[in-house]
């Protein structure tokens, strides 16, 4: 593997981190999660345990993902499995959002 290739991989990781930061910001600013954004680990659960969000928060979260990150979920059966952790939300944004190149 070349140095260039490694740099490309790090670039992809950086792009993912940027989306992670956007999701963290939504959690802190809109859902009032009481943590500093950079303290929210990627694989932390959103509901029940972890960040302890509830069903009413879930609605707000989906709306924010749509308005802030352009995420449109075509099929409602995708919603629950995608909303497990911050990282699964990022997967959702990357596959269904308007992410700038």
């Amino acid at each position: 593997m070349t140095e260039e290739r490694r740099a490309e991989i790090l670039g992809d990781i950086a792009r993912r981190e940027a989306v992670l930061d956007q999701v963290r910001t939504i959690l802190v600013e809109k859902l009032k999660v009481e943590r500093d954004a950079d303290e929210i680990d990627p694989d932390v659960a959103l509901f029940g345990t972890g960040l302890g969000l509830d069903s009413v928060d879930a609605v707000e979260l989906l709306v924010c993902l749509e308005t802030e990150l352009g995420v449109r979920i075509p099929d409602s059966s995708l919603v629950r499995p995608s909303m497990r952790t911050v990282n699964t939300l990022v997967d959702l944004v990357l596959s269904h959002g308007k992410v700038s190149a």
């Binding site: 009413v56 928060d57 609605v59 707000e60 709306v63 749509e66 308005t67």
Partner: peptide
């Protein structure tokens, strides 16, 4: 800000 269909459910409660 977001229209009726996207109002804040937590504020509604």
């Amino acid at each position: 800000a977001r229209g009726l269909a996207r109002l804040s459910a937590s504020a509604f409660a």
